[in-house]
């Protein structure tokens, strides 16, 4: 039976083809068939994870927590220099200059990306804003979050920093970031499930060496990554503990 690879739905669409190229590279390394299953919905992906359908997942930090602590997955590696940070932005012509200027009744454009949403809400706390006095418009992508903001369908937007930076210069010039998180230890990880057990050591070695392998370098580039770093078990546990402190 083929193994199944999946990617957290928050990956930048510009790197979609990169994950197909990575899947081909992966099959060569493992000598086995691997099917790449992509999702638009975080919840649909989680259902399939819980149903045991996925074996290797490029997971966002929130889902990595569930995968490791509840489902016995193991984190193999993390992408180098790719911490997940959150930006809260408003329209460039808005009078507000800091989070504390935002007032109850705020309309927030957000995505179902759990880490970004949680961190966005944490950064609103300093203005006494929470789910009881803020309304949300949940959208499928950061492009749509920006669009809602610029069309005045929302007052503020939550963005994955990398997603914000990938917007066109024109769109970004019409927005004003109020705050950007600087956590640096929360990031996506490549997480392997029980059916990957026999491959874990080999795959970790190959992933770490990808940046030195002439055939691996273009694959990394197509995914927009610099390389992979090994995640020790305690580093994983630390990241999950940290996320636990942020989730109510």
């Amino acid at each position: 039976m083929a193994l199944n690879l999946s990617v957290s739905p928050d990956f930048p669409p510009t790197h979609l083809s990169g994950w197909f190229i990575f899947n081909t590279w992966l099959q060569r390394q493992l000598g086995e068939g691997v099917h790449l299953e992509l999702y638009d919905s975080f919840e649909q992906q989680r259902e399939d994870i819980r149903a045991g359908k996925l074996d290797l997942i490029y997971a966002n930090p929130y889902d990595a927590s569930m995968l490791v602590r509840e489902l016995g997955f193991k984190v193999l590696v993390r992408p180098r220099n790719r911490a997940d940070e959150t930006v809260i932005a408003v329209r460039a012509d808005d009078e507000v200059t800091c989070v504390e200027d935002l007032a109850p009744g705020l309309k927030v454009a957000t995505t179902a990306d759990p880490d970004v949403h949680i961190m966005g809400m944490i950064m609103l706390e300093s203005a006494d804003l929470d789910a009881t006095n803020v309304s949300f418009k949940e959208l499928d992508s950061y492009v749509l979050v920006a669009k809602a903001l610029l069309n005045r369908d929302a007052d503020a937007g939550f963005f994955l920093k990398a997603g914000f930076e990938e917007l066109s210069e024109l769109v970004r010039s019409k927005m004003k970031p109020l705050v950007s998180s600087q956590i640096s230890v929360v990031h996506h990880t490549l997480v392997a499930g029980p059916r990957m057990q026999a491959h874990m050591d080999t795959l970790t070695d190959r992933l770490v060496n990808m940046e030195h392998d002439p055939k691996g370098i273009p694959v990394l580039k197509s995914m927009g990554l610099d390389g992979w770093d090994v995640m020790e078990e305690e580093q994983t546990e630390f990241m999950i503990d940290l996320i636990d402190t942020l989730v109510d």
């Binding site: 504390e100 706390e125 300093s126 006494d128």
Partner: peptide
């Protein structure tokens, strides 16, 4: 593990 974040002025 202890994680501290920015509190609101009213709190």
């Amino acid at each position: 593990t202890s994680v501290r974040r920015k509190p609101s002025r009213s709190k």
